[in-house]
Amino acid sequence: MALKYLGSALLIVLWTGVGPVSAQTATTELDVTVGHSTDQVEAASSQVRIFGDAIAGWRYYFEGTWAQTWGPTSDAFGSAYPYDKRVHPMEMYGEKTSQFGPYVAGVRVGRYRTPFGIYSRTDHAYNGLLRAPLIRYGAYWALSNNFLEGGASVIAGVPRLFAEASLGVPQDEDLHSRRHGLDRVVRVQGAVGSIIVGASHIRTLPSEARAFARGRAEFTGVDVRWMHEGVQLRGEWIDGRPFNGTRTFGGYVDAFVHRPVMGPVTAVLRAERLDYLAGRASSFPRRYIAGARIRLSTMLVGQVNAVHEYGYRGRLANSALDLAFTFSTRH
């Protein structure tokens, strides 16, 4: 816990060190989202972000969130933030990225989303898909989009092929937060033409109590993105164990289609699976989502998802319609 607010401390240091001739900048963003799902879930959330340039090429980033759902337990709207009626600090870090001839190197220090696979906030938050991938939702025995690291991450390589390594401790903002201990994450990313491929590995501690979950959690994943003429395909496949004696594997494929003729509409599709192997507790959920993100104005986006899912242990197949509106402003 001592490192929980390392990010804020770093930001204060960077901020107070800013001199009158520095390249200091500050951008503030506010997002407010309201949503309704036919799963009898209502949701409201807000996020505040402050980011910009600090000194000597360093940049800072801070994000806080508050979100709440009303209704039965559901993963609806939980794509990138915890919906638990509390204010959470999310990412708080300073970073510097430099290029030396053909080489790129960077360091990020503070509190940041676990750099595993497709992990950045904007990869998942209100991008048209209103639920986190099964393999990235904390309750489903794998990773969570709300996993955060407190520590340092470095990247090194050339822009089209670099490695990222993170060493820190878990600082998750998730109902299924990991136990404390040392976290190691490594990731390699390469880009060839329009294809971007990554491979990641994490060795961390389980989310469950020590008496129930022995050993370490360990996952390996591959991720691919491809984009051409307004069509983006992306996906991840993750395999590993949340703790000894179990195995979780699965993945998802997303499509985002935004052709000129579609104007403000981006069509979104997702197909995904997750297999949790734990004897009688095993579960094999499958989910398919079709929907759209519609830019209603420069500050208002509507999102609608038709969801069909089945295969959860002890639950019937379910179909739902999720609807959300996100108001965003930036200063």
Partner: peptide, 21 residues
């Protein structure tokens, strides 16, 4: 980032490309 222009003027979609490129 995924930079694009679909309206009047030059129409293009640059796809995804990483930092430093």
């Amino acid at each position: 980032h995924n930079v694009f222009s679909f309206h009047d003027g030059k129409k293009f979609d640059l796809g995804l490309y990483p930092t430093g490129t």
